[in-house]
Design a protein around this nucleic acid. Structure first.
Lengths: 222, 222
DNA sequence: GTCTATACGCAGATAGAC
DNA sequence: GTCTATCTGCGTATAGAC
């Protein structure tokens, strides 16, 4: 692993734990095992380091989602797998930052900060949600065609709603002590499916879960 | 308006715009029209100022919600009014921070930061969500009794889901450029109601909206 | 209650040796 | 590529006069 990559890894970890402002280059350098000025050989400044870090997170996030729906075909399973892939991703981040999966990591805050500070990150965020939106919309279209999903719900709106819901689960889970998405995701998904499906009982598919979150790296570029 | 109150107002504004770390006491003092050391006469330190500010926001938030359901009776209207009261609240904050309602303010980030830093704020957040949860649960119970709301959805779970959804709408709206909760709230609510109701067409109630967000103060304690 | 003056620390960043 | 030494700026906070 190159020094550059080590710096990026340590940066991601620190940005996630402390946020941009409370992350200091001295700490990152110490974790990598170098001195602060050496960082400046690899990166122009803190801002560049931040942008590179956030970009890596997004690349990895998109990989998680697209991998999750490769080997399933029903809309029920695809939506569930997307949901699960996001949970896995967050669990992995929790593991990386060392909070033992106890609660989702503060991804949203980092994105929001980045969005307001750098146009490039705003665009990267939009690209990610555009991807998620078109992916989920295709699943819904398919589900409506197969009569798995209710046709009286507008597909554009339903897509945005599903994305919002999932974001909301993570958000609430990270601020409200009595709500734990890791405990409840199965009932949350079942309940959601009940609302959007035409079937009285969904046909429960059997599919492979990713085995052990701890062993999964953050993405191809890592 | 006392100097102390002016300081609190300016603090809330700055914390919302810049976050805790990037808010400087010099700026707050300048906006109030005093010098930095004078702040220390009214507050022990920056932390105390932060806690007081966040607490004011929560008191105000709870007032908005509880006021919104005072004069309506159906579960359809009550849920809609809660949703609308949160939108109004966020619009008012947007107005205060001066972004012209263009997007929701960064409330969630501030809460998350505060929660991790101070036990007191964690408890205050939990108290708020406990209040919201019990309020919405009562509405759902009533709706299920009146046959307005589906009985095959678990009321505990549905309550947490509705809260998550609303949080998610605000979250997504503040990071994804193509999603605007202020534009879409009516369709979002209609679609949500379609999913949780037993009726094919909801009886649309007529109720008073708060007239002009710009004229509403942030709460009784302000 | 509010001020001027100031202490102190730590951040990001650069110069230049090796 | 990495280091030591150092610059510069801004933050919170305090002392003490008025």
């Amino acid at each position: 692993m190159s020094t550059r990559d080590k710096i990026i890894d340590a940066s991601i970890k620190n940005f996630l734990i402390f946020g941009y402002d409370n992350t200091s280059l001295s700490t990152i350098a110490a974790e990598v095992g170098i001195k602060k000025p050496s960082i400046y050989y690899h990166f122009k400044n803190k801002e560049e380091l931040f942008i590179v870090s956030v970009n890596h997170i997004f690349d990895s996030l998109e990989n998680y989602v697209s991998d999750s729906i490769k080997n399933v075909s029903s809309s029920y399973e695809m939506l569930e797998n997307i949901f699960l892939s996001l949970i896995d991703f967050n669990k992995n981040l929790s593991y990386i930052v060392g909070n033992n999966h106890s609660e989702p990591v503060n991804l949203y805050n980092l994105f929001h900060f980045g969005k307001n500070k750098y146009v490039y990150i705003r665009e990267r965020i939009d690209k990610y949600y555009n991807y998620l939106r078109s992916t989920i919309m295709d699943i819904i279209k398919m589900g409506q065609k197969n009569k798995e999903i209710r046709k009286d719900l507008d597909k554009e709106l339903l897509t945005l709603q599903i994305i919002s819901w999932i974001e909301g689960f993570f958000a609430l889970s990270s601020i409200y002590s009595y709500f734990d998405i890791y405990d409840m995701y199965q009932s949350l998904y079942d309940n959601m499916w009940k609302m959007i499906t035409t079937q009285t009982k969904p046909k429960k598919g059997f599919f492979n879960r990713k085995a052990n979150p701890k062993t999964i790296s953050l993405g191809t570029k890592w």
